[in-house]
Amino acid sequence: MSAPSPVLAVRGIAKSYGGVRALDGVSFEIAAGELLALIGPNGAGKSTCFNIVNGQLRPDAGTVHILGRDVTGLPPRRIAGLGVGRTFQVAAVFPSMTALENVQMALIAARRGVFGFWHPARRIAREEALALLEQTGMGAQAERPAAALAYGDVKRLELAMALAGEPKLLLMDEPTAGMAAGERREMIALVRRLTRARGLAVLFTEHSMDVVFGHADRAIVLARGRLIADGPVDAVRRDPLVREVYLGGTRPGREARP
């Protein structure tokens, strides 16, 4: 038996906008149970790379395989159907529904039950939805309207919704953006736990270096559309090129302090 294929394999993807190369021959892989951070300066191609993987953009060249299947150029909705969950930089949920209804909706959609016209949605997938809310620490807030939740809780709710499709791959765009330090710690620890427990592969972008170096297994660094580093976070942190174009370090920064 051959080695299990990676959950996500990106090979040689490139993308140009009006003659400007936004992404140039980028390749990487993620295995199940792995937490991979995608970092780099603004405008380095992180969003482009992310949006090619999730299907919002079609690459000019290269391929994207998910669980061994070529998904290059498929629309986001089809990619979602293949077991890819997503969370957004600004958490997106359905504010006019309760937390429970939000997760029920995600479950119904994942099971292709959207075109049901008769049976009340309230009674569909209720237990599973409650279980997901429990797992993300939102069990006590199930009946509250999403519009009334604190932002940190909205992020947890979004995570529960992303998990509804039983994804093998989770794409998280700045999972801790807009959260205070304490909340960030809890959030990333939660993602870490779920990754291990479910054998999930997670690709996330992040601006907080504390989150990246404290919690990711591996990091890849983009600069001017090219991959300049790929490896365990400690190696990436010490990489001279990465320090030069991205991390800096001439000033005693956070990582230099005790």
């Binding site: 999730n54 986001p76 909705r77 979602a80 159907g81 997503r86 957004f88 997106a92 949920v93 359905f94 504010p95 006019s96 529904m97 209804e101 029920q104 909706m105 995600a106 119904i108 959609a109 994942a110 292709r112 039950g113 959207v114 075109f115 049901g116 016209f117 008769w118 049976h119 009340p120 949605a121 569909i124 979004e158 919704m161 992303a162 509804a164 499709g165």
Partner: peptide, 22 residues
């Protein structure tokens, strides 16, 4: 029904609705 819920979901956040496969 689920259809009505999906309709409201699309109104509330098209981004999230599409990402959930609606």
């Amino acid at each position: 029904a689920p259809f009505g819920l999906a309709l409201r979901a699309g109104r509330d956040s098209r981004l999230r609705a599409e990402a959930s496969g609606i």
